[in-house]
Design a protein around this nucleic acid. Structure first.
Length: 674
DNA sequence: ACACCTCGAGTTCT
DNA sequence: CTCGAGGTGT
């Protein structure tokens, strides 16, 4: 193929800049992360191969976070705060603290503050001069954004002559809501795409290679905490830091309040929540800190949070919006799932325009109809959920919604719902939507994990007739792929490499990719381990299959039906011919320390990936279910664990342990005390 | 037959 | 995250 590298580089830069803007600033990505990475990787490699084409402001220098900004290690880590989602959780925190403070010792007063929805920043001054500003990053290492922060109007660049030798000030950078709205008004008039929300816009504005862009946006910050300090007057109370910061010329928020009791803290929280929309900045909660610095020191920190502070999260916001339509998506196994198409509404920190409705009955239970005004919120702060209609706003003649009788694909196959089933299915084996979903599923991370083979790529390939089933992935005509726009020499080679690598993923992942009804992650790996080779499973009778622990009559039946199907067997033979590994995992001898135990993991750990942690547990004879129950031996929490799991574990008295204790548990099979 | 745990699938947005 | 449904033990 003869493509002019200079032209391709220019094209890639334009594409990357466009998608970068969509992703970071507008909150509306058009392509998947994997596809985006492919573009960046191709550009990086082209620039490496043609150094004369590399330029300083190339997107390869500015995307991917760490590429642009030098890492900065925080002398004192910027820890995140423990969270309470309701007053009960706050009471629990308070009770723990009273106990930790010790007999007859008062916790003293609390400082209440708002929790700003912006970017946490640490600014370091040496002998009164701003020398460095860094983002929070992972808490230990952030990014150097000094040039950008220096353009923020109310960040002091130079302190008075009484400034200490070293002063590290922590605060939150934000964009005032009024400025955000003005910016969007201007963009609307110019016909430009609107920014999604103040927080993302502030983040995008700050993380600019060109600091003059940052300067053109009206960013502000509030200072609220000291980090490393040398040569400053000794403070005894956290509330004094606000007075001190103010005296040095730092902007501090005017809603800070010192109160004397836990009840007064709760009153502050309730008041802040009620008034949250009065402020010209976004808040997502309020914070209480123990005022006495001596008491803070004594209470200390856990591996993730200071014990002396807690963030109270405001209730998830509910907004009303228009239910434009109810549409149906078709999954890889033909399942038809209705979802709400909403007039875009900003709720709980992001713009929502879709929400799943699960099935026909759920639509009935919720009593919603296209055209209704509906209430929307974020379940668990993440997943959009339609709560129900605002009946007072329903037009009297608004018709009820009925489940479509036919698949939305071009062949309009019939959809059917069997007796006793909640879901509708499109059972047609040649449905193109199902076909695409299956191939996507096959390439997905839990299955064959083929990088760069996402939704967009699959649809492109099937539409071009390059691919019609999963075995086709290994029969791809790469010459033809190279002809498709957007597939340069390098991205074709990368794709070829990752497809080749996927052949060795092993039986467990292959079984997942085969798309067998009722067989998911867990069942697939159990079978792979029990049988050791795909042919043994294909030959096994119902009884043998169902005798495997975790496989019952339904899954056994489903397996038999799958492997009795000539079409499926044909696909499997083509996979074999392509050299796909049909072997199960090698059984490595590890001490079965966790026999009979169930360990749930939530949040990211430092020394384990999501997969490796499950492996560490199951290879030692333990189970690693996805949710906490009273049978759970322990809940391991890492960085930002799921709140519901922690709450559940607390309710049931399941021990909650950190990574270090988990490692000990792996070795000993005993939950360490503490 | 039932309760309780688990698992699977579809889903949203960063 | 939520719903629905399979698996297992009582």
């Amino acid at each position: 193929m003869t493509v002019d590298p200079a032209a391709r580089v220019a094209e890639l830069r334009a594409q990357i800049a466009h998608h970068n803007e969509r992703y970071f600033a507008m909150d509306a990505p058009e392509i998947s992360d994997a596809d985006f990475d492919l573009l960046v990787r191709e550009l990086t490699e082209l620039e490496a191969a043609h150094p004369e084409l590399a330029v300083a402001d190339s997107p390869t220098q500015t995307v991917g976070a760490s590429a642009t900004f030098a890492p900065v290690e925080h002398e004192i880590p910027m820890m995140s705060l423990d969270k309470a989602f309701n007053t009960d959780e706050f009471d629990n925190w308070h009770t723990r603290l009273v106990r930790a403070a010790g007999e007859g010792r008062e916790l003293g007063s609390f400082v209440c503050e708002l929790k700003f929805d912006g970017l946490a920043i640490s600014a370091r001054y040496e002998n009164g001069t701003l020398v460095r500003a860094a983002t929070r990053g992972d808490g230990r290492v952030g990014e150097d954004v000094t040039a950008n922060v220096a353009t923020i109007a109310n960040v002091p660049k130079q302190l008075g002559s009484d400034a200490p030798a070293i002063l590290e000030v922590r605060g939150e950078v934000y964009m005032p809501i009024s400025d955000f709205n003005a910016l969007n008004d201007a963009r609307r008039e110019a016909g430009e795409q609107l920014y999604a929300n103040p927080r993302n816009t502030a983040a995008g504005s700050l993380r600019q290679k060109d600091a003059s862009v940052t300067a053109s946006r009206n960013l502000r910050w509030f200072a609220y905490q000291l980090g490393q300090v040398e040569g400053a007057p000794t403070l005894t109370r956290h509330s004094e830091t606000f007075e001190y910061l103010d005296s040095l010329g730092f902007p501090v928020n005017d809603q800070v309040k010192v109160v004397e009791s836990a009840d007064a803290v709760k009153a502050y929280f309730a008041d802040a929540e009620a008034r949250r929309h009065e402020f010209d900045y976004e808040t997502d909660g309020a914070v209480a800190k123990i005022d006495s610095l001596a008491m803070q020191r004594d209470l200390g920190v856990t591996s993730h949070h200071p014990r002396w502070a807690i963030a109270f999260k405001f209730q998830p916001e509910e907004k009303s919006t228009k239910l434009i339509d109810i549409q149906v998506s078709i999954g890889g196994k033909g399942k038809a799932t209705p979802f709400a198409v909403l007039e875009p509404v900003f709720v709980g920190g992001s713009t929502v325009q879709m929400a799943t409705l699960h099935n026909e009955d759920q639509v009935k239970v919720k009593n919603i109809r296209p055209g209704d005004t509906v209430l929307v919120r974020k379940a668990g702060d993440v997943i959009p959920e339609v709560l129900g209609p605002v009946l007072s706003e329903r037009a009297p003649d608004l018709p009820e919604w009925t489940f479509p009788t036919h698949c939305s694909c071009e062949n309009h196959h019939p959809l059917s719902r069997s007796e006793g089933d909640a879901a509708h299915y499109c059972l047609h084996p040649t449905c193109p939507i199902q076909r695409d979903a299956w191939i996507e599923h096959f390439a997905a991370r839990a299955a064959m994990d083929i990088e760069g083979f996402g939704e967009r790529t699959v649809q492109l390939f099937t539409a071009q007739g390059l691919l019609s089933d999963i075995a086709g992935v290994y029969e791809l005509d790469f010459e033809a792929v190279g002809q498709i726009e957007g597939f340069g020499e390098i991205s074709v080679r990368n794709l070829e490499t990752s497809i080749e690598a996927s052949k060795g993923q092993g039986l467990g992942r292959l079984l997942i990719g085969l798309n067998i009804r009722h067989l998911g992650n867990s069942g697939a790996h159990v079978l792979a381990k029990a049988f050791g080779h795909l042919d043994k499973i294909i030959e096994a009778d119902l009884e043998t299959l169902a005798s495997v622990d975790g496989v019952g009559p339904t899954i056994a039946e489903s397996l038999r039906a799958y492997f009795d199907d000539e079409i499926n067997l044909g696909i499997i033979e083509r996979l074999r011919a392509a050299g796909v590994d049909f072997n199960g995992p090698e059984v490595i001898e590890v001490d079965q320390t966790l026999e009979g135990l169930a360990i749930v993991v939530s949040g990211g750990l430092e020394n384990f990936s999501r997969d490796s942690v499950k492996d560490a547990i199951t290879s030692r004879g333990g189970k690693s279910p996805g949710s906490v129950s009273k049978k759970t031996t322990a809940l391991v929490v890492g960085e930002s664990p799921g709140a519901s799991k922690v709450t559940k574990a607390e309710e049931l008295g399941v021990p909650i342990i950190d990574e270090a204790a988990f490692v000990e548990l792996l070795e000993t099979g005993v939950v360490p005390p503490g």
